[in-house]
């Protein structure tokens, strides 16, 4: 089902761009230009609300308050030209889920919308499957194309750390501290050795483990 998104933005150009961009990205946007009209809407019918603060008819914070008083759980992403902490704190206190300051790039807003709808981002299921790769975190077993792959404890912990957050890089420092045994092999150089062994053992799926320059490693989703 296409997620419905309510946009409340009085600026014609910005509102149109947002609506177009969200539609292109697979959402079903509804665009309102007026705060009063936004007050009349039941937010529960939407997956997310993008709410500008400076609106004709009613102030965005009043709209936000009304939505929260209606006990709606719909996430609200506030758009504001005010880049100061008290404004942000106030919006979050009134129940906003995120705060995006203008100017922003459409990509930035889209990513924030997707992040909000995707949460929680941590991998909750114990089994991760991509392509031929299958990782069972609970059973601590790994298979590529159905064939079991034997991994050392460090190699498995390394893979598990990446699997828990697919698509996000994990820093070398974090991996060294959390994956390697500090008594025996706690150095960054050792980590690289473990990664290259892991890649080799995963065969064709080894390429999923990408090196991120200056950061660490990432499992391509």
């Amino acid at each position: 089902m296409t997620p419905r998104i309510l946009i409340v933005e009085d600026d014609e150009a910005l509102g149109r761009q947002l609506a177009d961009r969200l539609r292109q990205s697979g959402f079903e946007p509804t665009w309102l230009r007026d705060g009063g009209a936004a007050l009349a809407v039941d937010p529960t019918g939407y997956a997310l609300v993008v709410l500008d603060l400076m609106l004709p008819g009613a102030h965005g914070l009043d709209v936000l308050k009304a939505y929260r008083e209606a006990a709606a759980e719909t996430p609200v992403l506030v758009l504001s030209a005010r880049n100061d902490t008290p404004s942000k704190v106030r919006a979050l206190e009134l129940g906003a889920d995120d705060y995006v300051t203008k100017p922003f790039w459409p990509e930035e807003l889209l990513a924030r919308v997707q992040a909000r709808l995707r949460r929680p981002s941590l991998q909750r299921e114990s089994v991760f499957e991509r392509g031929a790769l299958r990782v069972d975190l609970d059973a601590r077993s790994v298979a590529v194309g159905g064939a079991a792959v034997e991994l050392t404890r460090a190699e498995f912990d390394l893979l598990a750390a990446l699997v828990r957050r697919p698509g996000s890089a994990v820093s070398r420092q974090w991996l060294v501290e959390h994956v390697l045994d500090p008594d025996r092999e706690g150095s960054a150089r050792t980590l690289d050795v473990h990664v290259s062994r892991l890649r080799r053992k995963l065969g064709p799926e080894g390429g999923r483990i990408a090196t991120v320059w200056g950061v660490g490693y990432r499992l391509e989703p």
């Binding site: 750390a161 957050r165 996000s168 994990v170 820093s171 974090w174 991120v212 320059w213 200056g214 950061v215």
Partner: peptide, 9 residues
């Protein structure tokens, strides 16, 4: 430019 980032779990 390739921008990479990482935060702890």
């Amino acid at each position: 430019v390739e921008l990479g980032h990482a935060v702890p779990e």
